[in-house]
Amino acid sequence: MNARNDVLPLRVTQQLPTGLLEVELHAGADELDALLGFAARANAKRGFLFVSKVLGKHWPVRPGRMLAIHERLAAGVPDAPGPVLFIAMAETGLGLGQGVFEAWLRAHPGQQALFLQTTRYRVGTGPIIEFEEAHSHAPRQFLHMPDGAQEQALLKSARTIVLVDDEASTGNTFLNLTQACRRLNPALERVHLAVLANFMGAEATDVLSARFGLPTTMGALIAGAYRFTPADCPVDAAPAQRYDAQAERGASTAFGRLGLARALRTPDRLARDLAATIAPQDRVLVLGTGEFMHPSTLLGAALERLGVDVVVQSTTRSPILTWGAIGHALGLPDNYGEGIPNFIYNVAPGQYDHVLVCHETPAGEALPGFARLLNARLFHYHAEDDVEEVPVR
């Protein structure tokens, strides 16, 4: 990394295997190393990746550190008319978005809010909003209409929308989703974008309100702009999404796809039982799977409060090269049954004394094999406080 640390803006240049990445930071430069790393992707649409170190996706993070980040982003949401609709962006931003929603609820007791997550899986038979994340390895996303009367009422009466993701680069996905939500609810009055890193640049950020057609604010821990010059190198042509409207993928309706107006409960009894089996010096990884992230963070946080040395992370469908912030990569079968490659990064067999895999899907054939590879235990979440340990044979 080449960087100038004496004055702002801070300029960082990274020569990746896939091209040259140039970043200019206007805010948050003092936290750059603590919050972000850089990686390369085998993706023709975008050959680089900003790897968050506080997201719990590609990099292990202490649960308490993650919860503190959620509180910082929630504190950046301006006071605005309610009800407030929070939407977390699949796949990477789901745990972050739900955590920000719950942190906001804690800071605003009694105020009305609704959490929804976008998803790449169809659940139930109700209506959906479809939109695209154009630069993604798996661009097709859906937002399900809530099926509960209270949740439907909150969605249709929301006056402020808060969209949460790990980063903003062009703002196009946020704009697409906002426009879809406004067609559903013309009463929306304000938009707030909550991200770990805003790389849209100062000029684009300044005109968000004009572009969105509503008063629009941005909350980010790091802000700047980037330029990427791709190299001539092979890209991964493997599909990252196979959508079949009739296929049952095992994705749950209980954790946010159909709307939640409250915080998830933590499985405290499970945490106590697990902590009793863990020696003080043991290192523990709580591993979420795919879109199932926030419940594993809550379990990790409960273990941490009991004195366990624990980090949290998640599997992903994003193909990333072993370079830079990605020191190790493991391929694994897709537990949602789409038949696409999945990965876990910066985790090697034997690295942790205990690996606890949290999943919303039935174990099927995919998860037991992965569990044996990491000497892990499997925990199937039927509901937030109804968790079944699945034997690994």
Rank of each mutant, 00 (worst) to 15 (best):
T229I: 09
R159E: 03
H192Y: 07
R140D: 04
Y381W: 13
E91K: 14
T315H: 05
A271V: 14
G250Y: 06
E388S: 13
Q313D: 06
V77T: 07
A197V: 08
L35G: 07
Y336I: 15
S209C: 04
P127I: 11
R249N: 15
L16G: 09
G47W: 00
P60L: 10
S157L: 11
C233H: 14
A88V: 08
G201M: 06
T170R: 05
Q98K: 06
Q246Y: 01
N172Y: 03
H382D: 07
G369C: 08
A204F: 07
L143C: 08
V12P: 07
L16C: 08
G28D: 11
L196W: 07
G324M: 12
R65I: 12
V84T: 02
T297Q: 04
G288R: 09
I161A: 03
G19I: 00
M293G: 11
A329L: 02
V355D: 03
V387F: 14
M66S: 13
D30F: 07
G331C: 14
A376E: 01
S252W: 00
G97S: 09
A383Q: 13
P349A: 06
H26D: 09
R159P: 13
L214S: 05
A90D: 15
A40T: 08
P280Q: 02
E248Y: 11
H108S: 09
L299G: 02
A180R: 08
R242P: 02
A238T: 15
K45F: 00
A29T: 14
V84M: 01
A202E: 02
L221R: 07
G76D: 10
A240L: 15
Q241N: 10
L105G: 05
T92I: 12
A204N: 12
R11Q: 08
H294G: 12
P234T: 02
V308E: 09
P280C: 00
N172G: 14
P333G: 02
R4P: 12
S169H: 02
P215F: 12
R265I: 14
G250N: 03
A74L: 10
L221Q: 02
L55H: 09
A366Q: 12
Q111G: 10
P362M: 03
D206V: 11
F343E: 15
P215S: 05
G331I: 04
I69M: 15
Y345T: 13
T205W: 02
L177A: 04
D232P: 00
